[in-house]
Design a protein around this nucleic acid. Structure first.
Lengths: 189, 189
DNA sequence: CGCACTCAGATGACATTGTCAAGTGAGTCG
DNA sequence: CGACTCACTTGACAATGTCATCTGAGTGCG
């Protein structure tokens, strides 16, 4: 027997996990409230006990994705044994990895509605701070780290977007996403 | 009295225009086949005479958007009176402008389904060629123009995505999208 | 211990949507 | 002029997001 609040929290978690799985498997169109409920072991109307509407459920998925990236960056920020440049490379490689392994989730993380949900904004902000800390270690000057960090973040986002949309063809551009990332890192400072 | 083929072509054009308008006004969710039909002056089933499904209609909207950008670049490529760098700046400013004025259409242009439709791919490819021609004029070396062009294209795409998703906050990054664009251009070569 | 209560979740219902089969009428061609 | 073609309309259906209502298991008070 579980307490009612535990059970409700577990259900909420199961709903977000189910939505994330469906998103990864079949894109945003596959995230049906009925499918989410079924996978989470509840009925189709259950999400409305935890989220005002479907958009908020997706925002929760985006939030969790940002938090996952943030946790990954946590260990990188703390690890002072590696040189800063290497930590930055690892951080960016991690982002690229999410973009490639979970393209639908990645697109969701960078889509507009996310910004309208405070919990999502907080998760994004925290993760950006982690990232900025790493960039600052590379640059030295914390003041200049912010614009340059934005440029790098935008660059990575653009590289992944072009990869995932099929616009980054090797014949046309004579370059791979990884090479672009290396060019991007090389132009820091 | 108009010939049947003219009338059909006009209807197809009206459908794409209506879909584009609805997309700009209310995002992709507002693009309902019924709404598209109504605005185009036809019924809800009319699109099926011109497109196999809704996705192909949206692909046609994306294609038209790419072609519009391509035409804008046409004049820039032809205009040898301006210095190459200025032409590149104007080209990128034009892209940024589309991203800001028509955020939903811009997102559609860089979304995955587009790549699966041959006519869309052709329009994108043609526009990318225009862009590469301008970049090549700036760089000098046509071989190096391709990777650098990809980096710039990805950068612009990323800047717009961060702007439109609300992630490019001035407080966090201490920079504007336009400033990022200038940084990006400054790092060419 | 027992009972009324709360609230997470279930269920029925409804409007909207994408999609297709069948129908229709205006342009087209012999 | 009559048969035909085909762009478009209309009716229908399944799937979906959403809400009002219901139900039963955990909870607090006596």
């Amino acid at each position: 027997m579980v307490s009612r609040v535990e059970s409700a929290a577990a259900t909420r978690r199961a709903l977000v996990d189910a939505a994330a799985e469906l998103l990864d498997e079949g894109g945003v169109d596959a995230v049906t409230l009925r499918a989410v409920g079924a996978r989470a072991g509840v009925s189709r109307g259950a999400p409305y006990g935890h989220f005002p509407d479907k958009e908020h459920l997706l925002a929760a998925v985006a939030t969790k994705s940002w938090e996952a990236v943030g946790e990954q960056l946590d260990t990188l920020v703390a690890d002072r044994s590696r040189p800063p440049t290497e930590r930055l490379e690892l951080a960016l490689a991690g982002l690229m990895d999410v973009g490639r392994r979970r393209p639908h989730a990645y697109a969701l993380m960078f889509s507009a509605p996310t910004a309208e949900h405070p919990e999502a904004v907080a998760a994004v902000s925290r993760t950006h701070d982690q990232f900025l800390a790493i960039v600052a270690d590379v640059i030295g000057d914390p003041q200049r780290a912010r614009p340059i960090g934005a440029l790098v973040m935008a660059g990575v986002q653009g590289i992944i977007a072009m990869e995932n949309s099929g616009h980054l063809t090797a014949e046309k551009w004579q370059v791979t996403g990884d090479e672009l990332l290396r060019m991007l890192i090389g132009r820091i400072g």
